[in-house]
Design a protein around this nucleic acid. Structure first.
Lengths: 133, 133
DNA sequence: TTACTTGCAAAGATTTTGCATCTGT
DNA sequence: ACAGATGCAAAATCTTTGCAAGTAA
């Protein structure tokens, strides 16, 4: 039988922090940020709630070259851009290319449900000579 | 000044293992596999050599949902397919969609160098009712 | 020889878990 | 009250590093 979720201040704060954060924070970054407004929050509980949010599909996780997983509130499908110089990850406002999934089905024996695209290069700030970090 | 690399049996074995492995192994999987033919290999050295191979661009790393980095020998650019049921990662024989990078440039202020696409769904084996694990 | 490599062990960093306690419903 | 949630600390995983010894060039 399925687990009955109940309201949790911690979980909502965690979600809000990820949701309102443009930079796709790591678990520890979320923890640092939340420590201020909820000093009692434990790391173990943070990870537990991140797992729940992932399972519920409210957030998604991804690794973008650093080896550490970064989280992203799921609003609608979108792509990502990763700066190879400073490592920042940003959302990409390009509409989903549904034709790509359709095209892919012609090349594969697998049952393809969808796709994600990650663009990489140098972000505008870095290109403008901004501080590398 | 740049480091002068020299031949290393270990490094080549590690590369070969990743190169000849269709399943995009994790570092520990490479280690397990190599333990047989080179019992003296140490984990620390494995990681060191993986870092070197990455730096040299001979392999690439990526996380595909499990949170653990998987490695892939770089031959030419290609996409990936990730089975959401059994977690296997396979190469995708679809030609690179260069137009996607071109289209993306119109949506972004960043300097876009390229892209990667990851398709997801259920692999042929799982779809055929194969054992889930 | 010189400088890169290696194995080993210790240390780091990140994530997961057991358990007693607390809390939403 | 009951079942899920929390904090804490210990443990498990995965990765990095220091160091003395080994080895390609």
């Amino acid at each position: 039988m399925k687990l009955q979720r109940r309201n949790s201040k911690q979980r909502e704060l965690i979600y809000e922090t990820i949701h309102s954060n443009k930079v796709h924070p790591t678990a520890l970054e979320v923890y640092e940020r939340l420590k201020k407004e909820m000093p009692s929050l434990s790391l173990g509980n943070l990870y537990r709630n991140i797992a729940i949010l992932l399972e519920e599909g409210r957030i998604q996780g991804g690794e973008f070259g650093s080896g550490i997983v970064r989280y992203d509130a799921v609003t609608d499908s979108h792509y990502h851009f990763v700066c190879e110089r400073c490592g920042t990850v940003s959302d990409f406002a390009m509409p989903a290319q549904n034709r790509i999934t359709a095209a892919a089905r012609r090349y594969s024996p697998h049952r393809i449900a969808g796709h994600t695209i990650r663009f990489y290069g140098v972000c505008a700030d870095c290109a403008a000579g901004e501080p590398v970090k």
